[in-house]
């Protein structure tokens, strides 16, 4: 019998993990895959698109001034691929910068919220009892404070900077994450496989590492990917109100805001290009998040 077991060593069948299943399901999701490629292209463009630019973000093209509606449109000959804004600055360079900043705010903000919310939720859920009640009541109270108020306070008190926007947005969006993770931890804690590990005498920290966290990752990934577009929207709203990124820096939200205000002069490209990128980014993240949720959702196994 010993021999029979040993000879089977070579032929051990490889299993399909849930990750492999999820990947297969994601790869089959057309909308999500297209979005993924598109997003990759957008990110590459945000990083390397600057090589093509013939102008810097705050260089004013004096020839255009006064005749922006007539001369400032998109053109390859004069190097303003996306035209110029109403101050005569190159819109290509500025859209690129806006794209970079919006992506950064979205991704970093979501990651900050995800890390903080996950830690908070997992601790609250696993400890349970009175600690859990207190931690979750705190979340309830914080949720009821209007987040715009907090962000505006932060920006007013500490001055407007990109860092403050990261902190403000991240701080106000971890609450939902904490709730989701706590719920998941609670249900995992009562699963029989965690009980089995406890019955075996596996130490608590090892249980969290080996049995709780790997089963949380799915939820966290999905929620984070859906958080990114929310972050981008939030930043745009703040910038639209004039509280966000400061000149000459810019973000897609700010560019859209400027574009809208000059629409009556017939300079539609000033709104069109930033808006197109903005929508593309949002659609990509939504479809990717959606695809991830469909692929990872443990319910439709």
């Amino acid at each position: 019998m010993q021999n029979a077991i040993l000879t089977q060593t070579e032929t051990a069948v490889r299993g399909r993990s849930q990750w492999a299943d999820a990947r297969a399901r994601f790869l089959k999701n057309k909308a999500a895959m297209v979005s993924l490629y598109l997003l990759a292209a957008l990110i590459l463009f945000a990083i390397f698109g600057g090589q093509l630019s013939r102008f810097t973000i705050d260089e004013i093209d004096w020839q255009m001034l006064g005749m922006i509606a007539e001369l400032g449109g998109p053109s390859v000959e004069n190097g303003h691929y996306f035209g110029v804004d109403e101050l005569g600055r190159d819109l290509y360079a500025r859209t690129l910068l806006g794209l970079q900043i919006s992506l950064m705010v979205g991704i970093i903000g979501a990651v900050v919220a995800a890390i903080f919310g996950t830690l908070y939720g997992a601790v609250s859920g696993y400890i349970g009892g009175q600690t859990d009640s207190i931690m979750m009541r705190t979340v309830d109270i914080l949720t009821s404070v209007p987040f715009f108020f907090i962000i505006i306070m932060l920006l007013v008190v500490f001055g407007q900077s990109i860092l403050m926007i990261f902190i403000g947005i991240g701080l106000t969006n971890w609450l939902g994450m904490a709730r989701v993770v706590r719920g998941q931890t609670l249900s995992l804690k009562n699963k029989e496989f965690v009980e089995a590990a406890r019955a075996l005498g596996v130490p608590t920290l090892t249980i969290i590492r080996r049995h709780i966290v790997p089963n949380l990752i799915g939820v966290v990934v999905v929620y984070t990917s859906l958080l990114v577009p929310q972050m981008i929207l939030l930043e745009s709203t703040i910038s639209f109100l004039g509280l966000g990124v400061q000149e000459p820096q810019t973000s897609l939200g700010l560019l859209i805001s400027e574009g809208t205000s000059t629409m009556q002069y017939g300079t539609f490209w000033q709104l069109g290009y930033p808006l197109a990128f903005f929508m593309l980014v949002l659609f990509c993240f939504y479809y990717i998040g959606d695809g991830l949720r469909d692929a990872l959702d443990p319910k439709d196994r």
Partner: peptide
Amino acid sequence: FQDPLASLNPRM
């Protein structure tokens, strides 16, 4: 345990 599938960690 009672529920055979639930008593095995799905990620292992």
